[in-house]
Computed example of a mutant assay.
Amino acid sequence: MERRKLGHTGIEVSALCLGSMTWGTQNTAEEGHAQIDRALDAGINFIDTAEMYPVNPISKATIGRTERIIGLWLERGGTRHDVVLATKHSGEGMRHVRGGAPITADSIPEAVEGSLRRLQTDYIDLYQFHWPNRGSYMFRKNWTYDPSGMDAAAERQNMEDCLGALQAEMDKGRIRTFGLSNESAWGTAQWLAAAERTGGPRVVTTQNEYSLMCRLYDTDMAELSMAEDVGLLSFSPLAAGLLTGKYQDGAVPAGSRLSLNADLGGRKTARAFAAVDAYLEVAGKHGLDPTQMALAWCMTRPFMCSVIFGATSLDQLDVALGAAHLTLDAEVLADLNAAHRDHPMPY
Rank of each mutant, 00 (worst) to 15 (best):
P344H: 12
M226P: 05
T49E: 09
T144L: 02
Y247W: 11
R174F: 09
D48C: 08
R4H: 00
S306Q: 01
H33Y: 12
A339D: 09
A320W: 02
A272K: 09
T219N: 13
R174S: 06
K246A: 09
E196R: 13
L242I: 04
G64H: 05
D48L: 12
Q26L: 14
T312I: 01
C305S: 10
K246S: 10
M159N: 03
S59P: 11
E67G: 08
G287C: 00
N56W: 13
P302H: 11
R174V: 03
P344D: 07
R76D: 07
D315Q: 09
G99K: 14
G173V: 02
A254C: 06
N158L: 15
A294N: 06
D146Y: 14
M170N: 06
I36N: 03
W297C: 03
C214K: 15
G78K: 07
F178T: 12
T312F: 00
S148A: 14
F139T: 11
T79K: 15
S181Y: 07
H33Q: 08
R118G: 02
P201A: 01
G231Q: 13
W191S: 00
F309T: 10
E160G: 10
L74K: 08
P147E: 02
D315F: 11
A189F: 10
L119M: 00
G100M: 14
K141T: 09
L280E: 06
A195L: 05
H89T: 05
L116Y: 05
A15D: 04
L242G: 03
T87C: 02
F46Q: 01
R176S: 11
T104G: 04
G43L: 07
S136Q: 00
H96K: 13
D329R: 04
H343W: 12
A270I: 13
D335R: 15
C17E: 06
E169V: 14
L264H: 07
Q128K: 10
R117G: 04
Y210L: 13
G77Q: 12
S136H: 10
A338S: 11
A195T: 02
L18Y: 04
S115M: 05
H33M: 11
M293E: 03
L40F: 08
C17N: 00
D41H: 08
I36P: 01
L238M: 06
H340L: 07
T327R: 09
G77N: 08
I63P: 00
L295G: 03
K60H: 10
D335L: 07
L126N: 02
S313F: 00
G231L: 03
M226V: 12
T121S: 10
M94F: 12
A240Q: 15
L233V: 11
D146P: 05
R98H: 11
N158T: 15
S20W: 03
E155L: 10
A42C: 06
D82F: 04
E155Q: 12
T28A: 11
R4L: 02
M293C: 04
A272I: 08
D106S: 13
S14L: 01
V13N: 03
T104M: 13
V252W: 09
S184V: 01
M213N: 05
F273M: 09
L321S: 08
A101V: 02
A240M: 15
A194R: 04
A152C: 03
L212E: 08
T104K: 09
F309G: 12
V83H: 01
S90Y: 05
H33R: 12
I103D: 06
E51G: 00
S115D: 05
D277M: 07
H343R: 14
L116C: 12
A39W: 10
K172T: 01
